[in-house]
Every structure is written in C-alpha cells, then in structure tokens.
C-alpha cells in the first residue's frame, strides 16, 4: 500500500492552509440534476445477444447447405436414372402381358 503521507510537509501544509473555500452550489442544482436524468438504456448483455447469434447461425447453416447441395446432385441424378429405368422396365413387362389381351380377342 502506498503511503498517503506527504513527503513535502511544509509545502503541503501551506497549500492546505491557504486553499480557497469551494463556492456553495446553487440551491436548485440537485433538483435540476435529478430532473434531467434520462431513463437508463440497459447494456447489451450476453443473454440479449442470443437471438442475434441464433439468426447468424441459421444463416450460416443455410449458406452451408447451399454450398453442399450441388455436391449431392450426381447422387440425385443417379437415383433419377434408376427410377426411370425401373419405370421403363415395369412398363415394358406390363405392356408385354397386356398386349395380347388388348390387340386381338381369342377366337
């Protein structure tokens, strides 16, 4: 702890002895001050930042998804090809069985 004792006692004593008295405040200063106090604006706490953080996170995820979707396209195309192949095969089989019934009736 630093010492508050003056190490130039003569000078300090002279200053204290002859310092001017502080003028009294205006009678209405306190009232004026209290009347002009604006309402407090609460500081941004960590808790209040959560919606902002969540929004940023969601946006980042959405952007990441946009980047990754093209990478999935070949797989989607392959799936579509398989589906088309299945449909065509099924149609072919179906039409092969259906043809005799629909073209010519039995004698």
């Amino acid at each position: 702890m630093t010492t508050p004792l003056p190490d130039d006692p003569q000078l300090v004593s002279f200053l204290r002895q002859h310092q001017s008295p502080v003028p009294a405040p205006a009678l209405d200063l306190e009232a004026r001050l209290l009347a002009t106090l604006p309402p407090h604006v609460a500081p941004r706490s960590a808790g209040r930042r959560w919606p902002f953080v969540l929004a940023i996170g969601a946006a980042a995820l959405w952007g990441l998804g946009q980047v990754l979707i093209p990478a999935r396209q070949p797989e989607t195309l392959r799936l579509a090809t398989v589906e088309t192949h299945l449909e065509e095969s099924w149609s072919h089989v179906f039409s092969a069985h259906a043809e005799p019934w629909t073209t010519e009736p039995l004698p």
Binding site: P23, P25, A26, L29, R32, L33, T36, L37, P38, H40, V41, A42, P43
Partner: peptide, 22 residues
C-alpha cells in the same frame, strides 16, 4: 475554478448516471 462549477458538477453526475449500466 468557480466558473461554470455547477454546470461541471451536473455534467459529471449526468455522465455517471448514463455510464452506470457499463
């Protein structure tokens, strides 16, 4: 000095009030 002393005191405490949340 004494000039504007009341205004300065008021300014200090207004800054204190505004700064309290921080």
């Amino acid at each position: 000095g004494p000039t504007h002393l009341d205004d300065l005191v008021q300014d200090v405490f207004l800054r204190v009030w505004r700064g309290l949340p921080r």
